[in-house]
């Protein structure tokens, strides 16, 4: 029996000996993931609306609007990227072909199982009705999504505002045609974190060359 025990202990020792890698070898830049709806026509759009704030998600999934100088610098960067691609920013949502919404996740947040629905997720922050009275049917993603956001994630979503119903009482889904998720570990230095988020925004547009006006 003792021999069997020693043998099993040896087997356990064998199977528990994986050497973990040194995670500090990874650079500090955010991971940037983008996807888009292949049916979307980015080239035919000419105007877009960008709110003057970034939504942040703190504890309890409660929406907080981030509007200080740091937020404005990130929004200005997004506006600059859109201008480089030929789009004109409008002051009125009703005049915009596209809409852009930015959400900064401050803590681990997981949202799943609400694709195309009108669940509890983004609805309580960037609620579809923000973009017009027609979008009472929730969100409509042209691609599969699942959400698991960790500390330090910036989410950019582009919505198509062109196919609004003539009847303003009609309720339709708001189509999300582009999504960029950037995530990484945050440092204790706010300036460095802002730099990392800014670089992630730049990378999101760099790898989305299809966002371009004719």
């Amino acid at each position: 029996m003792k021999k069997v025990f020693v043998f099993l202990a040896g087997i356990l020792l064998f199977t528990s000996c994986e050497k973990d890698p040194d995670m500090s070898e990874l650079d500090s830049d955010f991971t940037v993931y983008t996807q888009y709806d292949e049916a979307a026509n980015f080239a035919s759009a000419s105007t877009y609306y960008l709110p003057d704030s970034i939504l942040t998600t703190g504890s309890g999934m409660k929406a907080v609007y981030w509007k200080d100088d740091n937020a404005q610098s990130l929004l200005a960067q997004v506006a600059s990227e859109m201008a480089l691609r030929g789009y004109v920013r409008t002051e009125e949502k009703a005049e915009a072909d596209l809409g852009l919404q930015l959400t900064y996740v401050e803590s681990t947040t997981q949202v799943s199982g609400w694709v195309g629905g009108s669940g509890w997720g983004w609805d309580s922050w960037w609620y579809p009705g923000f973009w017009g009275p027609y979008y009472g049917m929730g969100w409509s993603y042209g691609f599969p999504v699942s959400y698991s956001y960790s500390t330090g994630s910036m989410v950019m979503e582009m919505v198509d505002l062109r196919n609004t119903p003539a009847d303003t009482t009609e309720q339709v889904q708001l189509p999300v045609i582009w999504q960029a998720v950037s995530s990484g570990l945050l440092s204790g230095n706010a300036h460095l974190n802002l730099t990392l988020v800014g670089r992630a925004i730049d990378q999101a547009f760099t790898q989305s060359s299809y966002i371009k006006k004719d």
């Binding site: 995670m23 990874l26 650079d27 991971t31 993931y33 996807q35 709806d37 691609f143």
Partner: peptide, 14 residues
């Protein structure tokens, strides 16, 4: 065709 990911990677093979 519609998804891109920019990242560095650490690999571990046990």
């Amino acid at each position: 065709p519609t998804e891109a990911l920019t990242t560095d990677q650490l690999h571990s093979a046990f």
